[in-house]
Design a binder for these strands. Sequence first.
DNA 1: GTCTATACAAAGATAGAC
DNA 2: GTCTATCTTTGTATAGAC
Lengths: 191, 191
Amino acid sequence: MQTYELILNTAYSLFARNGYEKTSLSMIAKEVGISKPAIYYYFSSKEVLFYALLQAVCDEIRFEKFFSITQFSATNFADQLVQCGLTMIQDQRDDPNYSLLMKEFMIQSTRDEKILVSVKTVIESYLNGFEALLQHGVSLGVLTGENLRVKAEMLTLVIDQIDNYMSLSIGFDYEGLWRHCVSQTLQGARS
Amino acid sequence: MQTYELILNTAYSLFARNGYEKTSLSMIAKEVGISKPAIYYYFSSKEVLFYALLQAVCDEIRFEKFFSITQFSATNFADQLVQCGLTMIQDQRDDPNYSLLMKEFMIQSTRDEKILVSVKTVIESYLNGFEALLQHGVSLGVLTGENLRVKAEMLTLVIDQIDNYMSLSIGFDYEGLWRHCVSQTLQGARS
DNA sequence: GTCTATACAAAGATAGAC
DNA sequence: GTCTATCTTTGTATAGAC
């Protein structure tokens, strides 16, 4: 593997585990097996390294990665929505660094406009994705067109928070929560 | 005001705005108007100061502070639930440092067992509080007894995440979200 | 209870050799 | 592309005077 990617991968897990501030370039350099100044050859500062990581992660978790609108039909809509969500939850469970790093981005975004923009973009991709998906559901006749925006906001908020709570090992019934949320969203449909 | 409280109050807003690591004791001392070593007279370390703050904040946001079960009757149940939630949301909007600091605790809790316990205790106070409240609602006949636990988890998760998103200025319709969430929770009740 | 002065460690970053 | 050596800053924390 190239040094560049090695640095990124190492930074990925170190930032996730220790947080941005508590991860020093020395630590990263040591784990990669190079010297500290070598990092500066690839990244002009610690901040720039962090941004690069942010972009890579945001790219990996876009809405379309988990929810593919073309797979949703009138007969499988609810199941498909549940299933895609569960896959997403499972993915995050498999790589806890994901959620930890995302949390780290969230907290840094309150102090860094550039990070905030990236985080917001991800959240909006979910909001708009869910809204489009529900709109598709309306045209399929699996739900009414009421409160679509709020419903999309709810799905976004819930799937995101499930992720957060999981990484804190809060003992909620995550699968049950998601199923419940989906069924409530689609409820009161059908004639 | 006593120096002790002055330090706590100053630390409160500085930790909230800059985060734990980026807030130095020098900054706190300067803002309070004392010297750095003076802080050590009251708090044996920066960590201890942070713990003290954590306890104070957790105490201020317990479930009972916002939701008083005795005020819920058969006729006002839904309205009351909506109203208490909105009050909570408004409270957090009035003091953004609240949410920011809570976020800070959340992130630190992934690396510090002591903090994790406090954070979990707060979340559980909401989970158990909502469950008891819904149980009360069942005996009042305003909702069925199905899925009480999941419903309580949902209310907890949603009100918490509303708070998070608000502090990031994500443009969701927070009042609408909470109303929708409450109405879905109580839906399918009544005969 | 609060100060000045200081010890000590570690961080981010740069200069310049190889 | 990677190194050694070093600069500069800042942090937490302590000793001891007042």
